[in-house]
Amino acid sequence: MEYAIQTINLSKTYGGGIKALSGVSLEVPRGSCFGLLGPNGAGKSTLVKVLLSIVRASGGTATLRGVDIRSAAARERVGYLPEGHRFPNYLTAEGVCRYFGQLGGLAGPELEREIDDKLEIVGLSEWRKVKVKKFSKGMAQRVGVAQALIGDPEVVFLDEPTDGVDPVARQGLREVIRKATARGSTVFINSHLLAEIEVLCDYVAILDKGVVRQQGTVAELLAAASGASLSVRFRTGSIPESLWTKLAERGAEREPAAAGPEGAGAPQWFHMEVADEAEISPIIDSLREAAVLVFAVEPRRMRLEDAFIELIGAGRGMHVARGGQI
């Protein structure tokens, strides 16, 4: 497999001995959308800055597009949207794209075409002549994405790309990111919004205290967090005590009753772990044999957010139950 980004034991220690990254080894396949997750202060932004030589690595090696990151050539055809960016307030939207496009080595009609194209993609064509200082946070963020995509870069780093963007525009930006990966760009996203990473990214890594805790596809990460078992919820009528004892022995747990009708015949929820989906039918059979009404059966898929808390929260005394309850 070809990698757009590869790091081997990358580390960064700031003055005062603060370790921001410790032996980070990552592989980001070309053309993929990669999400980097981690709590505040995990070292996510530092990692991106090290890859772009904004911050110098203290140890280890890394390549960008197959080129050593210490060389300026590694940053050719690379786009970047930093978190909390500040564009020169004397520039217009097209001025921002033109300036950073020129710094990226574009010029002439090709650059102008790119400016038209990228402003169109982020929906700012009509605002191109307006100075960015007049833009809302969301609009400035869209200009940031546009400048990062100028020249159809091979690798795009987006640090909190939807930060401060309203839900409609956020959906639009997701579309832009999807199109970028569809065109062959490798997109590397730092985000706190785990749901966003889950819908956008093929690969994810979890960084905590400068160390990669887990990396792989989203499915692999979920499996790592949940183990091999599957959680299933049942909504049933009243269960005879003898049957409940058997189910409880297999790990069934009743859920607290939600607001609604109570009493002996009231529907109730319980959940339990099964090895795989084939185990669900015998449970339903046993319920039906005891004349228990079965209203619903739903496998409870672990979400990325749950997996994140499961993997990160362990060291912080947190545990997530299936369904996202900590």
Binding site: R75, L81, P88, F100, Q147
Partner: peptide, 18 residues
């Protein structure tokens, strides 16, 4: 100082320039 402001310098440094 304006060049080196956080959030402003990052994009410039991320370009393929020495």
């Amino acid at each position: 100082p304006a060049l080196l402001e956080a959030g402003a310098v990052d994009i410039v440094l991320a370009k393929p320039l020495e």
